Simulated assay, not measured.
Amino acid sequence: MTTSPRFSPAASEFDFTSWMEAQLHHVEQALSQWVGVDTPADLGDAMRYAVLDGGKRLRPLLVLAAAQAVQGLQQAATRAACAVELIHAYSLVHDDMPCMDNDVLRRGKPTVHVQFGEARALLAGDALQVLAFELLTPADAQVPASMQAQLCRLLARAAGAHGMAGGQAIDLASVGQSLTEAQLRRMHSLKTGALLEASVAMGMACGVVSETAQQALMRYAQLLGLAFQVVDDVLDVVADAATLGKTPGKDADNDKPTYVSLMGLEPARAYAQSLYQQSLQALADSGLQNVQALSALAHMVVGRSH
């Protein structure tokens, strides 16, 4: 059996910008190679439109950063990074459709159903979802079968009724309702947080990690997921469409509960900063040395403007 290369320990001087550019280039190349190739009836055009050349790629970066922290298998991490991005992309395609959020702008361009029609958008989302699991189960032996199964289980759990889909169901059912902070946190821990947490868990699954480190990294992932949503709610209020890349103010227009509506703008900003500091402490508690990329990603999430 061919042994897949593992991530090497990072140098003591970590250049996050260079690291991120290299990882983004790697992920983009892999996605371009795997998405929408040889599909019938031009379905691939809609699939590629939904995935390529857009988005922050936060979830793939989290997979790769976590895999690097545990010196995981590179081939497995690459496939996991692309798979989680495909699940994220499919969810956006479906969420933007008229039967859900009915949005016309995503990643600075028309949404998939606006560009290709509702029927093809629905099929493109379906095809992206299935492709994610195909990528996690390659026919060659570079990714051990037990690792393939673990990666599939983590991603399926995060995407289904006990994760992203369940969170979206709560979101739709909560329009116009008053939620407590605990209820709002649960909704977003499923809708947004589950896939972010799965990204870290999938990265860890590409290597070997102690129970202590695993628990600390998952605590980091939970805090990051919550911080991401708090910042998202803040940006929905303060950013414009050109900066945000999607229609701002949609939550308020649809009377959806948010951290800003619950806490106020400045308290929500302060809460995001508190979550960031807690996430850094979780990384320190892991005892792992190579967590610079994870730390920098947390800073990027809380400091982002779109």
Rank of each mutant, 00 (worst) to 15 (best):
M1Q: 14
R6A: 14
S8R: 14
A10C: 13
E21H: 12
H25C: 14
A30Y: 12
V35D: 05
G36C: 08
V37T: 11
T39M: 15
T39H: 13
A41C: 13
D42H: 14
L43P: 05
L43C: 09
D45L: 15
R48V: 01
Y49Q: 03
L52G: 04
G55Q: 05
R57L: 04
R59N: 04
L62G: 00
L62Q: 07
V63Y: 03
V63F: 00
V70D: 01
Q71A: 13
Q71I: 10
Q74T: 11
Q74E: 05
A77F: 00
R79I: 06
R79A: 07
A80T: 03
V84K: 00
E85G: 01
A89V: 00
V93W: 00
V93C: 03
D96G: 06
M100W: 03
D101R: 03
N102A: 08
G108D: 02
G108T: 06
G108S: 02
P110E: 01
T111R: 04
Q115A: 10
G117P: 09
A121N: 06
A121G: 05
L122C: 10
L123Q: 07
A124L: 07
A124S: 11
A127M: 05
V130M: 13
L136G: 08
P138C: 10
A139E: 14
Q142W: 10
A145D: 14
S146H: 14
M147N: 11
M147A: 13
A149V: 13
A149G: 08
Q150M: 14
Q150D: 14
L155K: 10
L155E: 07
A159I: 01
A159E: 08
M164N: 04
A165S: 12
G166I: 05
Q168F: 00
Q168S: 08
A169S: 11
D171I: 05
L172I: 12
L172G: 09
A173Y: 00
A173W: 00
Q177H: 11
L179R: 10
E181V: 07
A182C: 01
A182H: 11
L184H: 09
K191W: 01
T192D: 03
L195H: 02
A198W: 02
S199V: 08
S199E: 09
V200L: 11
M202Q: 12
M204Y: 08
M204W: 04
M204K: 10
A205Y: 06
C206N: 07
G207I: 02
E211N: 12
T212Y: 00
Q215F: 04
L217R: 04
L224G: 02
L226E: 13
A227K: 09
A227H: 08
A227F: 06
Q229A: 09
V230S: 02
V230N: 06
V238S: 13
A239C: 10
L244V: 10
G245N: 12
T247E: 13
G249A: 02
D251G: 08
A252L: 10
N254P: 00
P257A: 06
Y259F: 15
G264Y: 06
E266P: 01
E266K: 12
E266M: 11
R269W: 01
A270K: 10
Y271Q: 15
S274N: 15
L275F: 05
L275Y: 07
L275C: 06
Y276H: 15
Q278A: 14
A282Y: 02
A282R: 09
S286A: 12
G287N: 11
N290V: 03
L294F: 05
A296V: 03
L297F: 10
A298G: 15
M300L: 15
M300A: 15
M300I: 10
S305V: 15
S305T: 15
